[in-house]
Amino acid sequence: MIVLLPLSAIFIKTAGLGWREFVAVALSRRALAAYRLSFGAAALAAAINAVFGLLVAWVLVRYDFAGKRVVSALVDLPFALPTAVAGIALTALYAPNGWIGSLLPFKVAFEPVGVVVALTFIGLPFVVRTVEPVLADLGADVEEAAASLGAGRWTTFRRVVLPAVLPALVTGFALAFARGVGEYGSVIFIAGNLPFRSEIAPLLIVQQLEQYNYRGATAIAATMLTASFAILVAINLLQAWDRRKMAAL
C-alpha cells in the first residue's frame, strides 16, 4: 500500500501525457545527456566499488589488524551520513583549492568525474556488506581442498573464491548502481550542474518541478524508473540463472 500506490501514480500521470509531448520532454537532447551521465557515472562508480569493495571485504574477513573494528564501522558511514553532508564535504575536498583537489593535475569538482567520486562514496557499503557474509561463509576448507589439489593462491582465488562470491558481488554492484542512478543529495553540490555536461537526471526532475512543470518531471521520472527497473530485472534473472546452475550440481 505505502509503496505500490504512490509509484503507480507516476505511470498513470505519464500515460496522461501525449506521446509527442513525452518525447519532447523525456527524450530531449538535454534529458538524454542527463541519463547518460546518471547511468554512466553510476555504472562506473559501481564498478570501482565492486573492485575495492571486494578488496575491503576480503581484508576485513581474512586479516587481523589493529583498528579493524573501527574500519569496519567506518564502512557504513555512507549509510549513516546524510547525503547533503557528504555532498558538501566531497565538494570542499575536491574543489581546486581543497585537500585533494589541490593535489590533482585535473579538475574533479564541477565536472562529470565529480559525479563518479560522489557515487563511489555512496555505493561502497552496498558492495562490502553483500560480499562480506558470503566470503565469511566460504569456509577455509574449499580453499584448502584447492591447495591440496595443487592450486596456487592466485589460481585458488580466481577459480574457487571468485566464482563463489560472484553472485553476491553482482548483487552489490546492482544495489550500488541503482542507488547511484537515483542519488541526488551528494551529487548536486559536486557536479556543477552544467546542462549537457554535468547535470544528472534527478536534478532535471527537480528543475522541472521548480518551474511547476509537473508533467515534464513525471515523464523524466517514468523514464528513469523504467530503465532502473529493467536493469534490476535483468540482474535478478542473471542471479536466478546462476542459482539454477549451482542447484544442478
Partner: peptide
C-alpha cells in the same frame, strides 16, 4: 516490494507525493 524505496531515486519519491497531494495533484 519492500526494498523498492531503496532503489527508487529519492527525488522520484518526493515527486510522487507532489503528484498525489500537490495543488494540481489528485
Amino acid at each position: 516490494l519492500i526494498d523498492l524505496p531503496l532503489s527508487v531515486s529519492p527525488v522520484v519519491s518526493g515527486l510522487i507525493y507532489v503528484l498525489l497531494f500537490g495543488l494540481q495533484g489528485w
